[in-house]
Design a protein around this nucleic acid. Sequence first.
DNA 1: CGATGTCTTAATGTCAACATTAGGACAAGA
DNA 2: TCTTGTCCTAATGTTGACATTAAGACATCG
Lengths: 225, 225
Amino acid sequence: MSSALPKAARRGLADEAADLVRAAIFSGHFPPGAPLREVELAERLGVSRGSVREGLAQLEHEGLVRGGWHRGTTVIRVTAEDAQEVYALRAALDRLAATTARRAATAEQLSALDRLVAEMTAEIAEGGDAPRLVALDIAFHDQIYAAAGNGRLTSAWKAIRSQVHLFQLRRVDVAYDHYRARVVDEHRELAALLRSGDIRTLARRAEKHVESARRSLLAGLPTAP
Amino acid sequence: MSSALPKAARRGLADEAADLVRAAIFSGHFPPGAPLREVELAERLGVSRGSVREGLAQLEHEGLVRGGWHRGTTVIRVTAEDAQEVYALRAALDRLAATTARRAATAEQLSALDRLVAEMTAEIAEGGDAPRLVALDIAFHDQIYAAAGNGRLTSAWKAIRSQVHLFQLRRVDVAYDHYRARVVDEHRELAALLRSGDIRTLARRAEKHVESARRSLLAGLPTAP
DNA sequence: CGATGTCTTAATGTCAACATTAGGACAAGA
DNA sequence: TCTTGTCCTAATGTTGACATTAAGACATCG
């Protein structure tokens, strides 16, 4: 009921609320299709409805929730069609991000990519916690977008990032072995190409990487929710 | 394009406010860098600050205005760097939209493109009102995105659409003759390729079309005021 | 004279009450 | 039984007041 917020940080309660709700969705507390009621969230987070409302609007722009006029807000469902749309767009964005980063990336940013690959490798060796691997996967691509240095491109990525995150979590649910077997090698190759690869090859690889994720997920959910 | 369907008549005041402010920016009432004060807008539009606030958040997601924590909201400025970012992203999106639409577009949607080209031609013949030409230009690309039928892709386009609109308005300010001389031919060629063109050629042409716009604008504002 | 601390002010951030609406329960009529 | 119209309720949409903050004015101190 009244599990109050530890502290309202300096960047607005709306952002805080958005982060908390997003985390709750990823953790499975709010499964796909679940309604997100403003009053309930406001009480649970210890903030007003206005802030919750603004936070939910953010999540809606991220595509993680859907809402209509006077029809409430609900968590999106993972349908095959949704996956097609998201991954098609992601392929185009990743391609641009990779080719831009190929020219603009600093040595430090390239090292950060290597570090993330190392973390993935370590995680696999220690058993391989699926949500943690997915988080590293997303962080890897975050880093590429950061290296590209195009604010608008990063915004476009943010607009589908949460959906990709959700889809990848679903993917490891339905095809963990396939994911676990490929995740390190694919990202290592991308990191290498970003450091010293041919632009054409890099562009193609970036698209293929997304294509691989798309197929892996779709193979697991053609029927039934 | 105004949605001729009366079905979507029920919108919130926030959407209304966003539309009005957006139009005011395009009309030049709020020049680049101008502050958008919530109380002032609320009084002028006859709605409460909450609705204005929500509307401004929309415009911020469209990249048309910028705002920080307790630092107010201002209209974006058209710098060369901004133009580079927006047009680089737009090239990637347009490429995907065109290639997707090449397969998915219906006959009716292709006809709509031809109709828009015809309107452009007529507009040029009648003297060529710059804002009207730009509006037709944007509408043409809206139609391509609609034909592609990818909701997420359309959202990404919407996120930069207003900025592109603003940049194009600036472009016709600095290089109207160049724009006027090319606009019809370039769009006619795109329409033809979408109807019966090679995918590769289409992809390249879509990118070139954006590149042409980028150069035309940048040539006019080498050193930003 | 320049640097610094405080202080004022005008804006945004937040909130809780009020108004409106969608969707379903329920009963009357054909 | 099916249809239809009414009412109810639980949610969202909207609002104005209150709290908080950033930025500049101003005076003080080194």
